[in-house]
Measured scan of single mutants.
Amino acid sequence: RTRTSFTAEQLYRLEMEFQRCQYVVGRERTELARQLNLSETQVKVWFQNRRTKQKK
């Protein structure tokens, strides 16, 4: 599997969503992935990694 390189715009949007809600599921995840031109899996994993980073 190749590592995803997020654009600055994608990271900004993901961070904004994370500040709003640390868990994104269902339709929200589908819509966010579509808007950012990413897969739902990429969005899901980004949120998982971001929550892990916050715990440290």
Rank of each mutant, 00 (worst) to 15 (best):
T4K: 11
E31P: 02
K55E: 15
C21A: 09
Y23K: 13
L14R: 00
Q48N: 05
V45L: 14
S39K: 07
Q54S: 10
E40D: 10
S5Y: 12
Y23E: 13
V43G: 02
A33M: 00
Q35A: 13
G26D: 09
M16D: 14
F6H: 07
F47K: 01
F47E: 00
K55M: 06
T4C: 09
T4M: 14
K44Q: 10
R50W: 00
E9Q: 08
E9F: 13
Q54N: 08
E17S: 06
R3S: 15
K44L: 09
K55Q: 15
Q42W: 05
L36D: 03
W46D: 01
W46C: 00
T2N: 15
L36K: 00
E17V: 06
Q22D: 11
L38Y: 00
Y12P: 00
R27V: 12
N49R: 07
L32F: 05
R34G: 12
F18V: 01
F6T: 03
T30C: 10
S5I: 09
Y12V: 11
F47T: 01
V24S: 11
E17A: 10
L38M: 10
E17L: 03
L36W: 02
N37T: 07
E28F: 04
R20G: 05
Q42H: 15
Q48T: 11
Q48G: 06
T4A: 08
C21N: 14
G26K: 09
K56H: 09
R13D: 05
K56P: 14
Y12R: 12
W46Y: 11
T2V: 14
Q42L: 09
N37Q: 13
Q22G: 13
L38W: 01
L14A: 02
Q35H: 09
A33T: 03
F47R: 01
Q35S: 13
C21M: 04
T30Q: 06
T7Q: 03
C21E: 10
R34K: 08
R27Q: 13
E17D: 02
T4P: 11
Q19D: 09
N49W: 10
K53N: 15
E9T: 04
V43T: 02
F18T: 01
E9L: 04
L38N: 00
T41G: 13
E31W: 02
T2R: 09
S5W: 08
T41S: 13
Y23I: 10
R27P: 13
L14N: 03
Y12T: 13
R20I: 05
N49F: 03
A33L: 02
T4L: 15
K53D: 15
E31M: 04
E17C: 08
Q42P: 01
